Computed example of a mutant assay.
Amino acid sequence: MSKELSFKRHRRLRASDNLRALVRETHLHKEDLIYPIFVVEGEGVRNEVKSMPGVFHLSLDYLTEEMKEVESLGIKSVIVFGVPKEKDEVGTQAYCETGIVQKAIRQIKKDVPSLTIIADTCLCQYTSHGHCGVIKDGEVLNDESLKLLAETAVSQAKAGADIIAPSNMMDGFVAAIRQGLDVAGFVNTPIMSYAVKYASSFYGPFRDAAHSSPQFGDRKAYQMDPANRLEAIREADSDIEEGADFLIVKPALSYLDIMREIKNRHPVPVVAYNVSGEYSLVKAAAQNGWVNEKEIVLEKLTSMKRAGADLIITYFSKDVAKWLSE
């Protein structure tokens, strides 16, 4: 007598849309999205970034309209990047009271106060050499750069930023900024640290948008080697010890394994940065009819949530919010 075949019937839970939705483990919400914006000086500027279809340089006279649209879509948070007219060796416009980011923060706070404003805190967009700190003899000086980064963070907090997001990867940057904020009276302003930021090839379109390409060399001496895992853990550990409230993993899609390890190790919100190269590759493929943009974007953002991300910085935010409303 033959033995009865025995096996598990996993397909029972996949039979219909409703059943699949009922047992779905990972969910993407509008509240998870952080929308990046690029503000520029001048008037009447709403120019599409050539390498990032759907992403625009916006002058302040277009900013409020854009922020009201973001609010109406159910997106709760934006991260602000500035593109100044003037640059110098020490990035003065990064920490100037009348800098473009400081102006943008004040305007958003006044016109669309419900939005949470995250300020990107770095010097590369503001320095004439395009590096994230002070240069001497061709080297980015760590400790001298920390003073300017702390000054930048304080100026952004004074303008009304709800969260400070330092992205420079200098050693001790969280400690320096935390101290600077505390001394200035901003003890309750959180730090969203770019804790794990790799020296990635996926940043090209962003540098086009932010006008922040290095004028010499590269950033491999301070951003992380893409081959390293344990180094990412050390970086995240240091930032938590120094006072970080959120941890960013950047880029997201090629580093989902790192994201999961960071989330398992630290009980703080983890943020995936779905970077410009990841965005532009999908946009280019979609425009050529090679992929279904909606399906591939929702799949990859869900993969980031599944890997441990609580929040996602993505240029797709407005599109995703519309798709989720459907």
Rank of each mutant, 00 (worst) to 15 (best):
M1H: 05
S2M: 00
K3I: 14
S6A: 12
S6I: 15
R11F: 12
R12C: 00
S16R: 12
A21H: 13
V23S: 11
E25N: 14
E25T: 13
H27E: 13
H27Q: 11
H29Q: 07
E31R: 13
D32C: 07
Y35I: 04
V39T: 08
V39N: 10
G44W: 10
E48M: 13
S51E: 15
M52G: 01
G54D: 10
G54L: 01
V55I: 15
H57Y: 09
S59C: 12
E66W: 08
K68I: 02
E69I: 08
E71Q: 12
S77C: 07
I79M: 10
V80W: 03
F81A: 01
P84F: 04
P84D: 08
K85R: 09
D88A: 05
D88P: 03
E89G: 06
T92I: 01
A94F: 02
C96Y: 05
E97P: 15
Q107H: 03
I108H: 04
I108L: 04
P113E: 03
L115R: 02
A119M: 02
C122D: 08
L123T: 03
Q125C: 08
H129L: 07
H129E: 11
G130A: 05
G130E: 06
G130W: 06
C132W: 01
V134E: 02
K136S: 10
G138N: 03
D143I: 03
D143W: 05
S145Y: 09
S145V: 05
K147A: 15
A150M: 03
A153Q: 07
A161N: 08
I164F: 11
S167R: 10
M169N: 04
M169H: 04
M170A: 13
G172Q: 05
I177K: 00
G180K: 03
A184D: 09
F186K: 00
T189Y: 02
P190G: 00
M192Y: 07
M192G: 00
S193K: 04
V196E: 02
F202Q: 11
P205R: 04
D208Q: 15
H211R: 12
G217T: 09
D218V: 10
R219G: 09
Y222D: 09
A227I: 01
A227L: 10
N228Q: 14
R229N: 08
L230V: 05
E231L: 15
E231F: 14
I233E: 10
D237K: 10
D237N: 06
D237M: 00
D245S: 14
I248R: 01
A252H: 06
L253P: 02
I258D: 04
R265T: 14
V275A: 04
G277F: 03
Y279R: 05
L281S: 12
A285K: 05
G289H: 03
K294D: 13
E295W: 07
I296D: 07
V297I: 15
T302K: 11
S303G: 14
G308L: 06
D310F: 11
L311R: 09
T314K: 07
T314P: 11
F316T: 09
F316P: 10
S317V: 09
K318V: 06
A321Y: 03
W323K: 07
